[in-house]
Amino acid sequence: MNVLIFDAVRTPRGKARPDGGLAQETPHGLVAHLAAAIGARGNDPRAVDQLTLGCVGQIGAQGGHIGMVAKLACGLPDRVAPHSLNNYCASGLSAIGQAAAAVAAGQIDRALAGGVEMMSRVPFMADKADYYEATDFAPRRRYIPVAVAADLLAVKERIDREALDRVAATSQARAAAAEDTPALIASRIAIGGLDREEAPRATTPEALAKMPPAFAAMAAGYVEALGGATIEHRHTVAHAPPMTDGAGLALIGRNGEGARARILAYAEAGGDPRDSLTAGFTAMNRALARAELGLRDLDRIEFMEAFAVTIAKFMRDCPVDPDRVNVSGGHLAKGHPMGATGAILLSTLLDALDAADGTLGMVVVTGANGVGAAMIVERLR
């Protein structure tokens, strides 16, 4: 793949509660703010053929074809084709990947793509899908909440509580430090008075060690789906990404001056719904193979902290320098606005590469029930 990224911007993440820093905004309004920011930074967001937007909770404030609603809010020309997609936590990166595929195929010249989620307006599982409680699937194919799946995976992978605490502490410390490092937040756009990540919280190793596991009661409602499996619950609320509001948006195209980066490879993957959070690893390996690169070739990596078990597994099992991974903190500190996550991480990656004067970087996202995606980029300036 040889598709250019002209810019990628993101909002700060606001707490998903009525008094959260973005809660008075609208989902389409967040996207419109970011499109305007792309224009103010030197690229015309109206000169596109397509807007592709990821969003998980497509009801209420995010219903009515959120891609179409955002297109109208952004003031894009009538000719622009809008797309809305839901690929769970991979949605934002899937939107960019699918738009990039259309560019690479010559179907379009330029696109805006990204994701949005306002969990203060549309809470987790608010769509009340029948599948969440369906019993007409074999137990291994039934829905298991991602928090419960995270505990299952931690037991299966022999990732202990101390490892979970370590990655949580690192995420919080790096997120706090990033606020004082302008280069790492250069593409984060202040909105509605919110000019910093709202979810990070001060903590200590001692405080983390005292926190109780949080998701045993949730597991009790899914006994049949768990097939009698015994779970040693390990994840606390500090090991789970806070629910937040946020959006990310990228401008991509085939040619033009002033591009920030080039997409070298993109891959998606499915996985075992019971293991749930492992498909990102498969997507990562596919993307690396397509780019003919190894992890050691990468200057910066944004690996989604989809519960502490995923980043702990990555750091333990993969040959990677920890100082190149999630250098400005991750989801455990800053939060997870589901459909926006992949787009936010791409913007974060480009800032991290700029700050390090690096060249190659990768985003990896992974989500519930076996979805994952990965993208490798080459920084151009």
Rank of each mutant, 00 (worst) to 15 (best):
E133I: 14
R161V: 09
E378I: 07
C89T: 01
E232D: 14
V3Y: 01
G280A: 11
A261K: 09
L298E: 00
D323Y: 01
G227L: 09
G29L: 13
A306S: 15
A261F: 04
D297W: 08
L72F: 01
G21R: 12
D49G: 14
F124D: 08
P322L: 06
V363S: 10
A113M: 13
H28F: 08
T282A: 10
D195I: 12
I185P: 07
C318P: 00
I66S: 06
T244N: 11
V371Y: 03
M1T: 01
L72A: 06
A101D: 04
R142G: 11
D109W: 07
T282K: 12
A35D: 05
A73I: 07
C74L: 07
V320P: 04
A111M: 03
A291V: 07
A225C: 11
A279S: 04
V155I: 04
I159G: 00
A219L: 12
D354N: 10
G114F: 09
V9L: 13
H239D: 12
Q24I: 03
I185A: 12
R41V: 06
L72D: 00
F307E: 11
A352K: 01
D245R: 15
G367V: 10
E206T: 10
G29D: 06
A173R: 15
Q50K: 09
G358H: 03
V327Q: 02
V365R: 12
A175E: 01
G358Q: 04
A216G: 05
T282P: 00
K128Q: 15
R274I: 05
G20C: 11
A61R: 02
K313G: 02
V320R: 04
G92N: 04
M218Q: 15
R300A: 15
M218D: 08
A265W: 07
C318S: 10
V155L: 10
Q107S: 09
D351P: 07
Y143A: 14
M1A: 07
A149Y: 03
P77K: 05
A95N: 01
P123S: 09
I311F: 04
E157F: 06
R41S: 09
A32Y: 01
V31G: 06
C318G: 01
Y88P: 00
M362I: 14
T359S: 14
S276W: 04
D44F: 12
E157R: 15
Y88V: 12
I376A: 07
I263P: 03
G54M: 13
S276P: 08
V103I: 11
F281A: 08
M362G: 11
A238C: 13
A279L: 06
A219F: 05
D351N: 14
